[in-house]
Design a protein around this nucleic acid. Structure first.
Lengths: 342, 342
DNA sequence: CTGAAAGCGCTTACAG
DNA sequence: CTGAAAGCGCTTACAG
């Protein structure tokens, strides 16, 4: 365990003061550029690495950003985190990542851990259980910025980064209507979460505009698990008049439901046309491939992290009512395509 | 932005020295237990939280553990990380997580970032590209412990936590043989990685023991992507004598391959029986459901983190040749079950 | 453009 | 069982 090189060691070797070395290493404008060159090359030669802890202690900030997500095991979240890592590394920040596993209890614990780690800022996507942001009050009180992404809640002090889920739900439903569906069912997740509540609203709006039937019988709120997909298929089978269109707020659940529907003798897309959400790789594995809504995870991660860092560096004032909307695409595949192209 | 409470503030209020407060808060044995009670309750009352940076600076350790994984977007990795988080939180450590996205280049960058963050120890599962552990030399030189899990490489200084992949590959193949398969194909991943190389060896051993045909035509090394699954299906279709059994080292790839095989008219399991690996949720979504090898991610994560922390706390000497083997299970499902139960 | 000095908030060897 | 004092490695207001 060799001894660490400090700025004092560099200073001694170069007959300079530690203050000058510190400034040079931080690219302070007042330092002679020649001196800078000498110092940085000496630092490199001696294998110097800055002691973050001393620096953080002195500066009273940590250069660390906390991330809390519901789960890590989706392709979407993985690309979001890749985007965040990219930005954060370039900006000399660090990332602490934790998952709430869709439980408010774990989210509260995670928030506490993040607080005790004194993160400079927080990037959060809410668990399906979460009712409010009370567990982040300690952050608000200290003025630590919080950015919500994807699963958000409107609140002053919080920037939100989302897609227009209402419009996306509307578009998905309109697509089914265009394929000739007259009786469209929607399977959503926890309606506490904007992503599911808004998609449901979009679905309702589209039905309303086209005078199509809706209501309780055609709206199911679930946890979007595999089992929920099977249950929905069983439910559909029992219906006196089954739907001819199905919009599910998650690809994984949609795929499991499709499997069960096929086994029950439904033909897809002709008996029931199906649209999912998220463009998960699983959407390409099923036969027919699943129509879905795609939105850019990498970009969402980059924008969230960059906004937070800009705010921390004073380059951007996160205003109270700031919402950043990203684009999405409807990707039409076999599960919904009845109208053949010319 | 209210001022932070320090041990000096507590000391002043209680007419004690900061040294005593520090010791009490760290549960030092020399401190009167009555004094401890007074101090801890005062600390709580005043909203004290320890300043990690001052403490780390003084102690010369960070209480931070780094994790580098190939990808975050698998159910398996998500549970591994949940296990690590659990142990780490209980032990008052912090976790820094990063993904290499299967690229040695990114893995090198991640290692450097971890080194500069002065992690006390490292938990790593290697990217498919990685040739050796040279990029961890800085850690070895400083005596920073490194534990490899799942995707490992034999090297002194490194504890490995794995399942017996050779035996698992053997078991998977034997299962196919027991179902009557006479011509079994194996699709593996990068043979630089133990997990894939060992499963291949197990497959070969099983064939050898039963005098079944093997060789180049029946062994494919791929990246185990969806596209690879489709390519394998196309390859099988073109074979003069297609296999009647298929063992794929990844559920996701197996499922995509099954889909394409079914479309080409193969009946599963009767024409081709299929076994995957990892017990990914996707294995339950396909029809028929996929036979697979399950192994415990949560436990692997917990053991990896606990071993590292025990080592750091001097409770366990990680010996040079330490390998910890976990159990696994063969889960038989429809994709391979030809022999009906009585 | 460079330096001397104080201080960030802890921990711990030494002393009593 | 408790305290005084030094020091971990930086940064920065102040001075020149």
């Amino acid at each position: 365990m060799q001894k660490e090189v400090t700025i004092y060691d560099i200073a001694k070797q170069l007959q300079l003061s530690p203050a000058t070395v510190s400034r040079a290493l931080n690219d302070h404008p007042a330092i002679n550029s020649n001196t800078k060159t000498i110092i940085t090359s000496k630092a490199l030669e001696m294998g110097y690495r800055s002691n973050m802890f001393a620096s953080n202690l002195r500066r009273q900030r940590t250069n660390t950003i906390g991330v809390i997500v519901p789960r890590l095991d989706s392709a979407f979240m993985s690309t979001v985190l890749a985007g965040m890592e990219k930005v954060v590394n370039e900006s000399n920040y660090n990332l602490i990542i934790s998952q709430s596993l869709e439980s408010i209890k774990k989210e509260v614990t995670n928030a506490k851990t993040m607080f005790d780690s004194r993160v400079d800022g927080l990037l959060v996507s809410l668990s399906s259980d979460t009712e409010n942001l009370d567990h982040f009050n300690a952050f608000f009180r200290k003025g630590i910025p919080l950015i919500l992404f994807d699963r958000v809640v409107q609140q002053k002090n919080c920037t939100n980064i989302v897609i227009d889920n209402l419009k996306a739900g509307y578009d998905a439903t309109i697509h089914l209507i265009e394929q000739g569906c007259k009786r469209i069912m929607h399977v959503s997740g926890s309606l506490k979460r904007n992503v599911y509540a808004d998609r449901l609203k979009g679905y309702r709006l589209a039905l309303l505009e086209h005078g199509l039937p809706g209501g309780d019988e055609l709206e199911r709120s679930t946890n979007l698990t595999r089992q929920d997909g099977l249950d929905i298929a069983a439910y559909i089978k029992r219906m006196p008049t089954p739907p001819d269109g199905l919009f599910v707020s998650s690809d994984f659940c949609a795929v499991s439901c499709m499997g069960a529907l096929k086994q029950s003798g439904f033909s897809i897309p002709n008996d029931i046309a199906v649209v999912g959400f998220n463009n998960d790789p699983v959407s390409l594995v099923i036969d027919p491939t699943l129509t879905t809504i795609h939105y850019p995870g990498q970009e969402m991660g980059e924008i969230a992290a960059q906004s937070l860092i800009n705010h921390l560096n004073g380059l951007l004032r996160l205003s109270a009512t700031n919402t950043i909307l990203l684009n999405y695409d409807l990707i039409v595949r076999g599960s919904s395509q009845r109208v053949k192209l010319a």
